[in-house]
Design a binder for these strands. Structure first.
Length: 824
DNA sequence: AGCACGCCGACT
DNA sequence: GTCGGCGTGCTC
């Protein structure tokens, strides 16, 4: 029986209004080949413009009237781009993060694989210049003239060159009048890379015969034949370099039939240097226990999630490596996530050194082509291990056994673009779908993760000893208020200044750390350390220079900055805002003979610049390295004996509930850079708040004590992990309209949630108020924060979806972030 | 988001 | 009449 089949297709159209499956008829010839997860080309909209789509369902009835249903035009590729598991994962992400289908799928698919429709237009035959002149419409005349002069052109070029608004309508009109022809081409952004290879095409036994047929004076050709006697095949480039010959010599030999030139696809390889292979290391008692416990769990098919809490230098990586090796023996694949900033050659080398070409690397500095090739290596099963940043969690393995997330507490695992996913949550879901095991590792686990471990949701493993029993570097805390009392107004305390000087004399290296993140600064009293805080939110107030007010980024409270300190009545109220650049300047002035390097986002934009700076430090060409978080991870320089933390308060006073946690993590990690060689290290930490628990516990290297203090505060003030936070930002160019719509929407939201739930504190709505960044690119931004207790989240999301997505009032832009990293 | 349709004013 | 501008509403 000839039954009709239909496909539900998610169309590549970035609009909340088309964010749903559309039914298409499957043509008979594709009935048996079509599968869920396949890419298709479908006609969409009035103009039946061909757009790309993803098949999410195949069924034998259509939801809508059959007369409306169009047919699928073409299937792209012969196997699904998204496996069944990845499709499920995508749909789960859509609901979890309230994102659009197409955004989710585009995140999962490799960048650059999607094809773009390019339109070219050309003048029809026999159109004369006279005819063009008689066209009344100015825009149409411009287009025709351009085509007359330049021949066929792409619509994009026309748009740029002629600057015509709504150019497509003019083009459509011209086509109707039969003056031009439109040609559409579907092109992929990334092309496969090909390389020419030369193959021997003669029998080496008949070499004499071959040589007879070559002119005695054709030295280069003889040279090539000699070379090809010893090599069956060689890259054309290499052949030309090695024999110092030109392409014409090679070509003439090809014409004679002695060699063949063949174009073969080669996969780009982002690892361009030879990395020596390394061997397994002997495990310590603790490490062995770790590997055994996890492996036993895997063998029993339990697939638990583990947290390895290991102090810096306790050898977590070796644990990962040996577990990966065990997975290889089981023919299972592994994904290793590391934070983008620590995805340095040093990290990559550890994995490539152990497993060689079984490893693929994915990070943001790869070119589109490199990324595409790495993706295909994974998909085709050519590699078994992926080391990469956040998005590597979507590596298309088909027999996944293990996911490792190192430095689990890092904020870069949460995406800042829609879908605003958390790689840890996605990893957990992926492990659940594909029966794999998840390992989180950190010296300073995030409060949320450690809480889960305490609750027994995650299994906790501890590595408390450093390899070789090396001591943790002692941390000296300098109270900068005292420095001020003693008349020292510089950014260096006396101790730090002396220590740097001493280090310079001893030819040892120094790292100076300053976290300059954030544009707005905070207000503090230099005499008593008072920091302006919001009394409702326990969050530092941010100083806004343009309006000269202090604002709370959580509840919107705003007040004038004090001119005298409310605590000690001193006049030393200051705003703080020293960045790494300023530090560099001061260091150069204070220590004119020192060789100084700075490493932050500004100095490492270019590919490889990161490595260049680190090489300089490694070679001893730098005495003092100044940097942001970028230098807090993975760096291992034995000659660095001093770490100076210029102002621990910068992170501490960020208007964010995670600021204490971040401070503890940063001090611990930056401090860990000191004393990695023979000489014992030293850490000097400058602060205006030496009594703060995150600083005191960091000094003692006491994570547990810090956790206990922090979790109590989170509980008292209703912060994660005790609530979920949803951050909604609405944006529009018209501020008045935005303001009105915001209030209107929030009223509807409150009504739908029900005043009952709001009253008893299960759902708290803060705002609306202007967002911390109140205007971006001409768009005014307003923000609503919702705090929601555990089991109400699903209910709340449903309502948010109804209110903010399905009914977008007045076409206002809405962005939703569930459990954001920070609300800045 | 794009795109067509439709209504309106300006200009031949 | 015809062209272009902009508001409205729909997309299998």
């Amino acid at each position: 029986m000839n039954k009709r089949l239909f496909a539900d297709v998610i169309v590549d159209n970035k609009s909340t209004k088309t964010d749903r499956p559309f039914s298409y008829l499957i043509p008979d010839e594709h009935k048996f080949t079509i599968k869920r997860g396949m890419r298709v080309l479908v006609p969409f909209g009035f103009g039946n413009k061909l757009v790309e789509g993803i098949v999410v369902n195949v069924k034998n009835s259509s939801d809508v009237d059959i007369s409306k249903v169009k047919s699928i035009e073409e299937i792209i590729g012969n196997k699904p781009i998204l496996t069944e598991e990845m499709l499920k994962l995508g749909i789960w992400m859509k609901n979890k993060y309230l994102a659009q289908y197409i955004d989710v799928f585009k995140t999962i698919m490799p960048t650059g694989i999607s094809k773009k429709l390019k339109q070219y237009v050309s003048l029809n035959n026999g159109i004369s210049f006279e005819e063009i002149k008689n066209i009344k419409s100015e825009n149409q005349k411009k287009i025709l003239k351009y085509l007359y002069d330049n021949g066929e052109s792409s619509v994009d070029i026309l748009k740029n060159k002629l600057k015509i608004k709504n150019i497509s309508s003019s083009i459509k009109a011209l086509e109707k009048k039969n003056l031009i022809t439109i040609r559409s081409i579907l092109a992929s952004e990334v092309k496969k890379k090909y390389k020419k290879f030369v193959f021997r095409n003669f029998n080496t036994f008949n070499i004499q015969k071959v040589l007879q047929n070559i002119n005695k004076r054709a030295f280069k050709q003889l040279e090539i034949i000699k070379f090809m006697c010893n090599n069956e095949s060689v890259a054309l480039n290499d052949l030309m370099i090695k024999t110092e010959s030109s392409l014409s010599s090679v070509k003439s030999l090809e014409n004679k039939g002695y060699i063949k030139i063949v174009e073969k696809e080669i996969k780009r390889n982002p690892i361009n240097k030879k990395i020596p292979r390394t061997k397994k290391l002997e495990l310590t008692e603790e490490q062995k226990n770790c590997v055994d416990t996890i492996y036993k769990d895997i063998s029993e098919g339990k697939n638990n999630t583990f947290l390895i809490h290991g102090v810096t230098g306790s050898g977590k990586t070796e644990v990962y490596l040996q577990l990966i090796e065990k997975m290889l023996q089981k023919e299972k694949q592994s994904i290793v996530l590391v934070p983008e900033i620590s995805l340095t050659p040093q990290t990559v080398e550890r994995f490539v050194g152990r497993f060689g070409d079984k490893v693929a690397v994915l990070h943001s500095k790869l070119s589109l082509g490199e990324r595409y090739d790495e993706w295909r290596k994974i998909r085709e099963g050519k590699v078994k291990i992926v080391v990469g940043a956040r998005s590597a969690i979507f590596a298309p393995f088909d027999n996944l056994g293990l996911i490792i997330i190192d430095e689990e507490h890092e904020t870069s695992y949460k995406s800042s673009m829609s879908p605003k996913y958390d790689a840890i949550e996605v990893a957990q879901k992926r492990c659940e779908l594909e029966n794999a095991t998840l390992i989180l590792g950190s010296a300073t686990p995030s409060i949320e993760t450690y809480y889960k471990a305490q609750q027994g949701e995650i299994k906790l493993l501890t590595l408390s000893k450093r390899i070789n029993n090396r001591k943790m570097p002692p941390i000296e805390i300098i109270d900068m208020k005292e420095e001020l009392d003693n008349g020292n107004k510089s950014i260096f305390s006396k101790s730090l200044y002396e220590a740097i000087k001493e280090n310079l004399q001893n030819k040892k290296q120094t790292i100076l750390f300053l976290n300059r993140r954030g544009f707005s600064t905070f207000i503090s009293c230099r005499k008593c350390g008072y920091v302006a805080k919001c009394n409702k939110c326990d969050i530092s107030l941010t100083y806004h220079l343009s309006e000269n007010i202090l604002k709370c980024h959580y509840c919107g409270l705003a007040k004038k900055p004090p001119t005298i300190c409310p605590e000690c009545k001193s006049k030393y109220i200051k705003y703080f805002g020293v960045g790494t650049q300023k530090v560099e300047e001061i260091v150069k002035r204070t220590f004119p003979k020192a060789r100084v390097a700075r490493m932050d986002v500004d100095t490492t934009i270019r590919k490889g610049s990161h490595q260049k700076i680190l090489d300089k430090v490694k070679n001893g060409d730098v005495d003092i390295l100044i940097g942001t978080q970028m230098i807090s991870k993975g760096l291992d320089f034995p000659n660095v004996t001093l770490v100076g933390i210029i102002a621990a308060d910068i992170t501490l006073n960020l208007p964010d509930f995670k600021s204490a946690e971040r401070t503890f993590q940063l001090i611990t990690q930056v401090g860990g850079r000191a004393g990695r060689g023979e000489t014992e290290g030293r850490v000097i930490l400058q602060t205006y708040e030496p009594e703060h628990y995150s600083i005191k516990t960091a000094k003692e290297h006491d994570y547990i004590n810090f956790y206990n203090k922090e979790i109590a505060i989170r509980k008292e003030f209703d912060y994660p992990p005790f609530v979920d936070i949803i951050n909604i930002i609405m944006a529009d160019t018209d501020e008045k309209k935005l303001y009105n719509t915001c209030y209107k929407t929030i009223d509807i939201l409150k009504e739908k949630i029900g005043y009952e739930k709001i009253k008893n504190g299960n759902i708290k709505i803060l705002g609306p108020h202007p967002a911390p960044i109140s205007k971006i690119k001409g768009y005014h931004r307003w923000q609503v924060l919702i705090k929601c207790k555990g089991n109400h989240l699903a209910f709340l999301k449903k309502i948010i979806k109804k209110v903010f997505i399905n009914t977008t009032y007045e076409n206002i832009k809405v962005s939703i972030d569930i459990n954001p990293n920070s609300i800045l």
